[in-house]
Simulated assay, not measured.
Amino acid sequence: MKKIPKKYQPRGFDILHEDIDIIVGNKAPGALTVAAKWNADDTIHSALNQWVRKGNPRSNKSVYVVHRLDQATSGVLIFAKSEEVQHFLKDNWKSTTKNYYAIVHGKMKKKNGTIQSYLEEDENYVVHSSQDSEKGKLAITEYEVLKETDQFSLVKINLLTGKKNQIRVHLSGEGHPIVGDAKYGKGPSKYKDLCLHSAVLEITHPFNKKRLRFTAPVPAYFKKLIPFDYD
């Protein structure tokens, strides 16, 4: 087998699983999922397009975006290898299990519960939460506090919907912003890393229809703030 040149291997994306239909990997914090106004080329999407083309400039192979993770968020991310697979995964996204770890400031009064609101993004790309159904799209977040320290709480999230910045906005709205969240936190943060990680993604495979579960280890800075058996 011809060795794939290192320059074509995806940066910021540790591949966990690849088959004829999908690519699943652990996205590094700071890596862009898709193109943004300030960066159109240095993305996981672009790197994976190069990966599936194996350095062949004449190849028309591509990967297709199924979902996104915020730039500062790490963890499990899946791409489709065809439009047909992309549509299947998106159409079945409600049946996909999406579990996250988050470390938030303070101790939550309710140790578990469901946060539900309507989210809408403004012209400055800031997402706002409302109880008015006419002011955004429904977002539902289940949470459970796993461990507390004097300053922080480790929270496990079951994401029932997948709206932009949903977890960050919902936890901030509860008065417990995610550690390192300069956008939705309470003023500038001394913590440079966003403590939000996509830990588990469980899907129905588009070809054999079997349930597949993918997990990604948390970044080291989680364990420094709250030691815990994250596995």
Rank of each mutant, 00 (worst) to 15 (best):
M1S: 14
Y8M: 04
G12P: 08
F13R: 02
F13Q: 02
D14E: 15
I15A: 08
E18C: 08
E18W: 05
V24H: 01
A28Q: 14
A35P: 10
W38N: 14
A40L: 15
N49C: 13
Q50P: 00
Q50Y: 12
V63W: 02
Y64D: 03
V66G: 00
H67V: 10
Q71A: 13
Q71K: 15
T73D: 06
V76Y: 04
F79W: 07
E83T: 15
H87T: 14
K98H: 10
Y101R: 04
I103T: 04
M108C: 11
M108S: 11
K109Y: 07
T114C: 13
L119G: 07
L119E: 05
L119D: 05
E120P: 00
E121P: 03
D122Q: 06
N124H: 15
V126S: 05
H128P: 02
S129M: 09
S129C: 08
Q131A: 14
S133Y: 13
K137M: 12
I140Q: 06
I140V: 15
V145I: 12
K147T: 12
T149K: 03
D150V: 12
Q151K: 14
S153M: 08
S153G: 09
L154G: 05
G162W: 01
K163V: 04
K163I: 02
K163D: 04
N165Q: 11
H170C: 11
E174C: 07
P177R: 03
I178W: 01
G180R: 06
A182V: 08
Y191V: 11
L194S: 09
C195R: 01
L201H: 00
E202R: 10
N208M: 10
K209T: 01
R211F: 00
L212S: 03
F214E: 00
P217M: 04
V218S: 02
Y230C: 09
